[in-house]
Simulated assay, not measured.
Amino acid sequence: MRSLTAVEQFLDERAHRFLERAPAGGLRWKLAEFLVFGLKQAWACIFGALLLAVIFGARLWYPDDAPLARNDFLTIAAVVIQIVMVATKLETLRELRVIVLFHLVGTVMELFKTDVGSWSYEAEGFLRVGAVPLFSGFMYASVGSYMVRVYRLFDLRFARYPRRWITAIVALGIYANFFSHHYMFDFRWVLLAAVVVVFGRCVMHFRVFRRGFRMPLLVSFLLVALFIWIAENIATWSHAWLYPSQVNGWHLVTPDKLLSWFLLMIISVVLVAWVYKPVPPEADGVRLPAPAAEGATRQAGS
């Protein structure tokens, strides 16, 4: 298992005291695995979940006439959340470097997209760059936080992961297209085909509690993109930002945004892969067990 933070190690040890009493088979075993999977996912999402909760709460309860603009409040809240996570060792300094990179990559995109009118923020507050409030970068950082945390919480390993320089070229093409499609042909469907070719054979191996699982990497991209789309709907309902079609009345973000988030996942995975080099299931002599042999296997990490 990749290294847990001090807080995670503390929780891991206490979780094992409870979970190891679960039987190694049957319905209770399956329920225990499902529960641990959900808790791990929630733990991996903690930064994004806290930020989304603050955005949602500010929409409902933050006073319109407060001396501090709501966007500035959101920025300060995001900074506080990040500081607390590092200070309490919920995130490591190594992970923080990745998250800062996500922040910078996202902020550059935000500056361009708001300038061409793809979406807009309320024109308030001082903590902003141009038309972009600084809390927007933390929304991209929350994706980075999830990616690096889920990588070690589930001890992710990859069979037939493509060469990293090839994935970097695809990611650069995707990032460039987010800008260039406003002025020339939109290559997103070509890029989607490239993603399928490059990542189509890759299988992600992960462990929940006692059991190892496998999933095509493209399926995991799609599932994460779906949850980001759901979070985006909550954020736009909270007026964190709005698309042009939502200015005169909120409605669900169109499903075609799923493709954008799916492609963004490729950029996210490539960035994380340059910090945490993908390893195969057999790395370090460790092979995730096949389902038939998993029952009595104790895994180091809940």
Rank of each mutant, 00 (worst) to 15 (best):
F138T: 00
I166M: 10
L191Y: 06
L156K: 08
V203C: 02
L223D: 06
Y243A: 09
M215P: 07
D186R: 10
F158E: 03
W229Q: 10
A231T: 13
L172I: 15
I174K: 04
A176H: 08
R207P: 00
L226F: 15
G144F: 06
I166S: 08
A171G: 11
I230S: 06
S238G: 14
L222K: 07
F221V: 08
M147C: 14
K257G: 02
I266D: 05
G173C: 11
F138P: 00
M139V: 14
L191K: 04
A225C: 07
F206Q: 04
F213P: 02
V270L: 06
W165M: 12
R152S: 12
V203D: 01
F158G: 01
P244I: 06
R214T: 13
L271F: 12
F199E: 00
V272F: 06
R160N: 14
A193G: 12
A240M: 14
T254V: 11
Y140C: 04
V208G: 00
V196T: 09
F262L: 13
L156S: 08
L264N: 07
I228W: 09
F158L: 08
F227N: 04
D155E: 11
M147K: 05
R188S: 13
F178E: 11
I230H: 08
S220C: 11
L192P: 02
S260C: 10
T167L: 06
